[in-house]
Design a protein around this nucleic acid. Structure first.
Lengths: 371, 371
DNA sequence: AGCTGTTATGTTTACGTAAACATCCGGTGG
DNA sequence: CCACCGGATGTTTACGTAAACATAACAGCT
């Protein structure tokens, strides 16, 4: 699939010519059928340094009991041979892989991605690698497939970013002695769960709108099979009930902007709808578009609050008031929790909540006079 | 004294007798008082099934030369013990990890994430796992750090989703015999590169706007240090020059919607600006907001084209005409390329381009009369 | 000097798997 | 009848590392 573009490669790249092969690298050496091992082992280093393999091991792991003199020699030998510890052998010997597996749905939602990113960063910080197990379609078969792959995978622990009911439904066989932490779930009684405080966040959003003077707050909910969506819906109901307000009918989307638009067309048609709490920012975006098409101004006629605080939210028309989720913190806590479980320092189950913060922008205002 | 297993051996059956007179039956159990291992090994399965470990290995790997009868027995034993092959031992023996490492910047851009996702899916399909190596900040130190971690990591190959100039700057020492494929780069002369056809896409966008009757096309560019941005800018210049149109001054953002907004304020103030090609959808979003604030209607007064086709693009105000990038294909090709390199079937270097497709929505129209 | 304890280093072994080689067996053809 | 074949299975070995154990050298103490 070469294209003509290749001829257009910009000239004067960063000293391309000097980028030849590294020093000491002899000719490409195509034929290598002899068992000249590609990578040096401890034994090789030991031989060159004139010590035993065990001493090399000690140096490699920073163990005490090695003379400074010897250590220097070993390090020199390592460098000369380009020695790299073989992680397979290490894992075999130590019985652990220093790797955490992350199972998640297609990385289509901001939240999952940001959480994953935070997990990867935290894990790296703790000396752990992260292996990704994508689940293309959220079906039981797919989930089961992922866990089957997992069983043969080199991981010490697993973090599941997923609705837990799918986990259950898949009747997955978790590999024994693999620790699991779950995000986005209410299964704190069975697993260790880390999640954003959906309830508190939702409550803050509803209170904010009511405080502005709105009579009640409509809700653009996420899909029924999502626990996070369900939780937000429950909290919305609770907050309205507690305030003694009437409960408008529920409007449902599927997280996508497109579904928010369709649902928004319904809401826009309702004269009595002056405030909407959307279960995520993407749906809020679609809602804004629908309201705009209907000629209903935001925030003068209708106030909108989202959930997530995606980076684009501040550039919506108008900039969106929304609940900021601290995904970085969620990821960090996941890693901490799973490592603790591995070391048997932490509790077997229980839920940790990370607060959501209401970010005020320009999509909310008091209702139109007379409402 | 001997393990209980002996009493539990499969009841009857002709094979049972055969197993009985096998050698070593009277082995005096060399004081195996040590811990009951958490996970069963091949030896355990072999003992229970009354065969040798090698036979278990053959069954485990689907090798021929095993009677159907024996195979069944081994499978049963595996199931009973919950046997899982130890991937560390496997990797050690086979000399490969069946894992691909992916190095990428913070997963903040849609493109990177989608590509990563596609890579993970393709890799899983080929029986490979994907290990994530996040680089928090795009500094040389960080990149070097990632590669250092990589050296100790259990990967057979690496895919780098990154501007290649950072790669060079970091003077990274790639572990020997680890294959590398790079996305988002022009370094096809040194690496194997897979990328979207920035040039062709940009050209299509510019042509589309010119065909609508616009005199020229302005460009909201991405950051200078991004190769993708630079390539889009170059292609924009080339397309205009080729068409004999004047070249408006460049306006620059940093990929974010916020920067698109700021840059958009400049553009909105220019009466003669009737068509803008934004280097990505997020910036286009900010641009739309700026134009809206200035009272310039899209597409009646100003036409806008984006790049990426993020899921939200169809819900912008108005729905955005943009270039659809086939990230899934890019990811797929990355995996294919890197596996080919590993098997020495593919070329050492060269660039593969994936075409971008112009998606027409509602943000473009002929220029206002008289322009 | 003789003993003890400490420190640096070497030797043995085991981790679980799979390639290479060895053995056993029933059957076939000369 | 026996040499030979080939399929099924067993035995040996090596992969690279690090824990456990062993040894050697030496200092401090009685």
């Amino acid at each position: 699939m070469e294209t003509v573009d290749d001829a257009v490669v910009n000239p004067g790249g960063p000293a391309a010519a000097t980028a030849g092969d590294g020093p000491g690298t002899a000719a490409p050496a195509p034929r290598r059928r002899t068992r000249a091992r590609a990578t040096a082992s401890m034994a090789d280093v030991a031989r060159l340094a004139g010590v035993s393999a065990q001493t090399v091991s000690r140096v490699s792991n920073g163990y005490p009991g090695v003379t400074e003199e010897t250590r220097r020699q070993v390090l020199a030998a390592m460098k000369e041979l380009g020695y790299r510890p073989n992680s397979a052998a290490r894992a075999l010997k130590r019985g652990e892989f220093r790797t955490i597996g992350v199972i998640t749905f297609s990385l289509s939602t901001t939240g999952n991605v940001r959480t994953l990113e935070a997990i990867a960063n935290s894990a790296a910080h703790e000396g752990y690698a992260v292996t990704l197990l994508p689940v293309a379609v959220p079906t039981q078969d797919e989930v089961r497939g992922a866990f089957t792959r997992l069983e043969e995978l080199a991981v010490d622990a697993v973090i599941v970013i997923m609705e837990v009911h799918l986990l259950d439904a898949a009747t997955v066989q978790l590999p024994p002695h693999v620790q699991v932490v779950v995000v986005d779930s209410d299964a704190g009684d069975r697993y260790t769960v880390v999640d954003t405080d959906q309830h508190g966040g939702t409550r803050a959003a509803v209170r904010h709108l009511l405080d502005l003077g709105h009579r009640t707050v409509w809700h653009l909910a996420g899909p029924e099979d999502s626990f996070a969506a369900q939780r937000r819906t429950d909290a919305w109901r609770a907050a309205l009930t507690e305030a003694g307000r009437e409960l408008p009918p529920l409007v449902r989307g599927d997280w996508s902007a497109e579904s928010g638009y369709r649902a928004g067309l319904e809401l826009a048609a309702r004269e009595d709808c002056t405030a909407v709490f959307a279960a995520n920012d993407q749906m809020a975006l679609g809602l804004l578009r629908a309201l705009h098409e209907y000629g209903r101004r935001v925030p003068e006629d209708v106030s909108v609050v989202g959930f997530d605080d995606i980076p684009e939210a501040s550039s919506f028309l108008p900039p969106l008031t929304t609940l900021h989720q601290d995904f970085a913190e969620v990821g960090r806590l996941c890693v901490r929790a799973v490592l603790r479980k591995m070391r048997q320092e932490g509790p077997e189950r229980g839920t940790t909540l990370v607060p959501a913060r209401l970010v005020l922008r320009e999509s909310t205002a008091p209702p139109p006079a007379g409402r």
